[in-house]
Design a binder for these strands. Sequence first.
RNA 1: GCGCCUGUAGCUCAUUUGGAUAGAGCAUCGGAUUUCUAAUCCGAGGGUAGUAGGUUCGAAUCCUACCAGGCGCGCCA
Length: 570
Amino acid sequence: MKNIIKDLIIKSLSKIDKSSNISIESIEVSICKDKKFGDFSSNVSMKFAHLYDLKPRDLARKIIHEIEENDNILKIEVAGPGFINFFVSKNTQFEIIEKILEDKTSFGKNKEGNNKKILIEFVSANPTGPLHVGHGRGAAFGDCLSNILKENGYEISKEYYVNDAGKQIDILTLSVLQRYHELIDNNYDFNYEDLYKGEYVWDIAAEIHRKHEKNFFIENLNSMKINNIDDYISSVKNILSEKKFNEVKNLAVNFIQVNIKKTLILSGINFDSWFFESSLLRDNNLKKVISFLSNNNHTYEKDNALWFKSQQIGDEKDRVLIKENKDHTYLSTDIAYHKNKVERKFNKVINIWGADHHGYVPRIKGAFNIFSKGESDLIILLVQFANLFRGKDKISMSTRSGNFITLEQLLKEVGKDATRFFYIARKSDQHMDFDIELAKSNNSNNPVYYIQYAHARICSIFKQSIENGMQFSFNKDYLELLSKEEEMKIIKKLSSYPDIIKKSAEKYEPHLLTNYMRELAQEIHSYYNKFQILVDDSKLRNARLALIEASRYVLKNSGRIIGINMPDKM
RNA sequence: GCGCCUGUAGCUCAUUUGGAUAGAGCAUCGGAUUUCUAAUCCGAGGGUAGUAGGUUCGAAUCCUACCAGGCGCGCCA
């Protein structure tokens, strides 16, 4: 209907001025929230009045004067500063119910994406410990966004980048070895502060001890002089041998990764691919990328280090790629990773990062553009941290000390549905407070139960209808019996669902969908309380059943996208 | 100090890419179950949109300054 109106406006405009070159994309038509302004409204006359050298209201009048007759439109008015308001016939509005009942679970899908390929990378937490609640928001956001983009006809690949190389992993390995030695001989107690101290480190050490016994034991580790963590790492590597150190490393990383995957599955998230940082270091991959940059004049040498000319591609300053000690920096592998992303020929690449990485955005975007040469877009979406509350009490966390709530604990305590819903119910770039008590509560305070209850209620009515021998049978001719204000409100809400799907994809904002679900649920509850659905008049009854059945599909579909269950019974 | 993000009701947040009278929930107060699930509904109060300017038909939204908060500014990852 929106498109029909846009078309009418364009035609009218070209009648007023044959040379008009206003495109259909620039015509805005929106669904009115207040019914006194009609069903649809457009601001074209205010937007373009200056082009015609007219006052907005005068242009609006002209547009209306020239507009073609259309059976769907009852009347058109000029209002306020120059809005053109369209009043649509009821039968036209009822069409949406028919469409939903036809499309069922595919209602809302569109082909905007045109099967374009998108790589979306998210979570990508270092495998140095279990996922904690801080990772949860990015995880839920990335997964919901993926679902939304799929709904819009994009082909999505979800990827997790595993930082399985580098210093943090060495520190993890060392932490595990430390606990391992303590397990074997409790005289070993070298509490070095940089090491990971979470419970899970004990678990890994215990497993290694169980499987490999004293295979990695170093007799005099206790007496080793420790100046700094780097020396410590290299000494242990030397004594134990690089091979054995790597063996422990692999065992540790693998252990944690299994744990992370488990947590993600509990969150309802499946990744299509896992990309290992270590794969970038094999076969001289990284070297090739760096020589490519050097050959194309993107690097220079200074102070015995190799620098990336990141300033000329939008960064605040230049950055080091190869350190004085010949180690590569984190940035190097990240650039190599993004080169790889470009080579995989996606139409668009999306990264979801914690907001604390925002300073990192220009250099990666810059590097990406060097490789993609404009053939692909990199979009980096930042997700702010969530503060965790238990009622009024803020739960503070420190990661290194191991004193944090894991995502798994949260999922077990709150449940997958509420966890996902709460994480994405706010704009991602907005700080948010996550109240565990609220998410757990099963009363009206909790929007998840509120929405699910609306769905369950509808199911319950259908169950009742069957028990009472009032089986639903759809006949579109009965729909005109829907005349109550509440009914028309719900119809209007249902009509706007496809727009919400489209918009939440365009803006990368899943929270639009959670807001929508809440609003729809509210209208359903109000309607339910005010009117009897299962009335004796079978025509009216079937019309009402059609309305709530359509609502049910929309709830079900949006629930599928958000990743929350819509129960038939509660 | 420099850069990025944010500031909306007592609290948590929306506001359909600049639209019409800024809306929900919680909390507070008052009401509704002989009727399809009260995990629900109906009603009331509550606002100088951080402050001050600017841009235009029109600003919570865009620009500038200031105030307040978060984050980032390593040859760390």
